[in-house]
């Protein structure tokens, strides 16, 4: 499980291995190409990637979970804040829809009014519970 960059790593991990019984991606970014054109810090991402995506699709695709999606079998929970401009909501949506289409167990939890991480105390309490319940479901089997 992970949030933000940890969410990115979570999305990447489930394309690389089936060793985990379950995973949880919070505010993750599985698609670095669409991330560049939707995040509020595109310059940061482009600098990090070493150039624009149209000059180097290979690097962007190599590091984006969505381009290795065929391998995913791990039940993966997707959590995102609806008002996240850092890692836009659509990043979570892309992964969730792909999981659903591929028939991999998933659920998407969307927090309204929420930026790049829960702020309201009730949501902060809820998110811990949701993650714990998700893992319990698969670790008990």
């Amino acid at each position: 499980m992970g949030w933000s960059y940890g969410g990115y790593m979570t999305s990447f991990v489930v394309t690389r291995t089936d060793r985990f019984r379950a995973a949880s991606m919070g505010a993750g970014l599985p698609n670095l190409v669409s991330m560049v054109t939707t995040t509020d810090i595109s310059d940061y991402l482009v600098a990090h990637m070493g150039g624009e995506f149209w000059d180097d699709y290979d690097t962007y695709e190599k590091h984006s979970a969505i381009y290795h999606f065929k391998n995913v079998v791990t039940p993966t929970q997707v959590i995102h804040g609806q008002n996240d401009v850092r890692v836009p909501f659509t990043q979570g949506q892309e992964f969730y829809e792909a999981l659903k289409r591929k028939g991999v167990d998933t659920e998407m939890i969307v927090y309204p009014r929420t930026p790049h991480g829960p702020r309201e105390p009730k949501f902060l309490m809820d998110v811990s519970e949701r993650i714990a319940v998700w893992f319990e479901k698969y670790l008990e089997e």
Binding site: P121, L124, M125
Partner: peptide
Amino acid sequence: IWTPETHM
């Protein structure tokens, strides 16, 4: 024991 409630 840690719970979301105790955290709050």
